[in-house]
């Protein structure tokens, strides 16, 4: 199968600090691909390089085998790179509905004029209803988003990203700050995204339970370098990985 997302020799320095060094790996459609490593290993930097917020010093990013290294971030998003953040980023002064519509706007890509003229796009309400049932969220539409608890916001951000019909989803620590029930819902959402919709999911997560549970393939970073790749079992027993994590623990 052709990979949907491929990184080829990505390098990035921040004033002498190596954040990524010759990182190469690929994500297949319909696969949940774990991206793990100790704190400061360069995971979030890599996500920022993939979504185009940072430009890599060297190397290329391919989406569906098309080179998108020079493509600006908003075009990448429109080409199908969706993402969520460690701390959910929503419009604080808008209601929940408007916030989620941003996802549908991205999915429809009808342009400002068509949207202004009220052209019909995808059925926002039906699609949202489906996703919210999986996420087990219900609320009053017109309420401010700032009133929602953190866990719900994190789930909603995945929902918003899925409303944009991405081909690749970059999901940054979805489990952090969630209770066990909510983690389950998040996994259900990611399962739906990858298995039913064929989205390639790149998942950063510290919860090893979640990684081991849901990922088909895992890439491990340490100090910006890939130190191991493979399935969950192989990674769990990899000596380099264990050392990296132990070293990381000592630093903390």
């Amino acid at each position: 199968m052709k990979p949907i997302l491929r990184l080829d020799g990505i390098c990035k320095n921040f004033g002498g600090v190596v954040a990524a060094k010759d990182v190469t790996f690929s994500v297949l459609p319909g696969e949940v691909h774990g991206l793990i490593g100790p704190n400061g290993a360069g995971k979030s930097t890599l996500m920022n390089i993939i979504s185009g917020i940072y430009t890599a010093d060297k190397g290329s990013v391919f989406l569906d085998e098309k080179d998108i290294t020079q493509v600006p971030p908003y075009t990448r998003a429109r080409m199908g790179i969706g993402r969520t953040f460690q701390v959910p980023r929503f419009l604080q002064r808008s209601n929940i509905r408007d916030n989620l519509l941003l996802g549908t706007d991205l999915g429809n890509q009808m342009g400002y004029l068509n949207s202004f003229l009220r052209k019909k796009g995808t059925d926002f309400d039906a699609e949202l209803q489906e996703l919210l049932e999986i996420a087990k969220i219900s609320f009053d539409w017109s309420n401010d988003i700032s009133g929602l608890p953190f866990g719900k916001l994190k789930l909603l951000e995945i929902v918003r990203s899925m409303l944009g019909h991405p081909r690749v989803m970059l999901v940054d620590e979805p489990a952090a700050g969630l209770n066990n029930k909510e983690i389950e819902y998040a996994m259900d959402l990611l399962h739906l995204a990858s298995k039913k919709r064929g989205i390639g999911v790149l998942l950063i997560e510290h919860s090893m339970d979640m990684i081991m549970d849901i990922c088909e393939d895992i890439v491990v970073l340490n100090f910006g370098e890939v130190i191991a790749t493979g399935g969950p079992e192989a990674i769990a027993s990899n000596q380099l990985v264990i050392e990296a994590y132990l070293g990381g623990e000592q630093d903390d």
Partner: peptide, 28 residues
């Protein structure tokens, strides 16, 4: 009408956080 259209929402996204707006496909 602008407020309730994609343009209005995109502007609101820019107001709150330009980087997040970019990752949502908005040409800031």
């Amino acid at each position: 009408l602008i407020r309730d259209s994609q343009l209005g929402r995109s502007l609101a996204a820019i107001r709150d956080n330009e980087t997040a707006a970019l990752t949502m496909g908005i040409n800031v």
